[in-house]
Design a protein around this nucleic acid. Sequence first.
DNA 1: GTCTATAACGAGATAGAC
DNA 2: GTCTATCTCGTTATAGAC
Lengths: 204, 204
Amino acid sequence: MSALRHERASRTQPDDPTTATRILDEAERLAQTRGFNGLSYADVAAVVGTSKAALHYHFSTKADLGRALIERYTERFFTALDEIEASDAAAPERLQRYVRLYADVLKQDRLCLCGMLAAEYTTLPDPMRGALRVFFDRNEVWLTDLLEAGRRAGTLRFDGPARDSARALMAVLEGAMLLARAYGDTKHFDAAAAYLIREVTAAG
Amino acid sequence: MSALRHERASRTQPDDPTTATRILDEAERLAQTRGFNGLSYADVAAVVGTSKAALHYHFSTKADLGRALIERYTERFFTALDEIEASDAAAPERLQRYVRLYADVLKQDRLCLCGMLAAEYTTLPDPMRGALRVFFDRNEVWLTDLLEAGRRAGTLRFDGPARDSARALMAVLEGAMLLARAYGDTKHFDAAAAYLIREVTAAG
DNA sequence: GTCTATAACGAGATAGAC
DNA sequence: GTCTATCTCGTTATAGAC
């Protein structure tokens, strides 16, 4: 028992839902609602029930915390994309499930973490900027592959390079979240998403 | 001469390009690049060449400054839209000119002021929130009217309510600016905008 | 691993002279 | 209308006890 506890304590990033994880959870929530600059160690510590100093033990600087946030978010997001990959759904259904990932975030009154951080881009420390672009690059690749497969199969329809459509798709999703939240009305998002899916889904 | 100077001094908001205007100019630039929360009185004062206290004379609180920023931006934006209205261009051409308004902002390495503020929405003082929604509401109305006119004339093509397409259009423009700036590459924006215009423009 | 205490700085805002 | 000076508060970050 005490041996086990000691083993946990000796790790810098425990994988059971302890302090570090709860810090990330609350920091993520705040970053998605108020932005990274609108997030303070004091806010996080208050909810987690610890002290500002304890936070600095786990994430020595705010830039470290921010980078960890993006990396965890990215991993979780692409785990969800892997599940879509693993299914036998056709391209339009996969696209809808992709859109639903964004819609689920918005339903929690949050923005996409990386969309929010993109707005704050010029004020972010360098390691965070790099991690952000990794997220968007991987999204672009995933979507581009999906669009090309759908076009080959005749289930998706669009003109021009698939990559351009992938970028437009990401843009409309990020932008629609932004506007929907300002209106406190997820229907703004749903309407924009439905429009995009309709445009890209082959008739019949 | 001294009478003239006195007349100017007696106004709270002079309409010649003096201090208040220069404050707004620089505050706007900072808000569009770093965000409203990333903008400080000290930053603005340094560029304008005055003091923080002088700023407080013109805009007693930061919320006042913010509201003034949005209102001036909105007026300027709709002045540009009025010019498009006044032209005899067809709907597709008008839409392209609308998109160009956004592209021009991005070329200055800025985001749409209101798109940026939408990301910071939850942290904004109430008067600013109201002013923001006025901007988006008026945009939605203007675009909806344009889309409906184009569909009637047979020059634009889209399914469903024009308002939904208007919202999707705004979303993709705001989102594409966000992503393009993170990549430091306006081509990201141009590709997304071109995709949207292509989808909505009637063939032939 | 977490605490108290505090350093060091920058923010928005105010007072009062000129 | 603008200045200097200052106040108060919140921020990130650190030191050192336990």
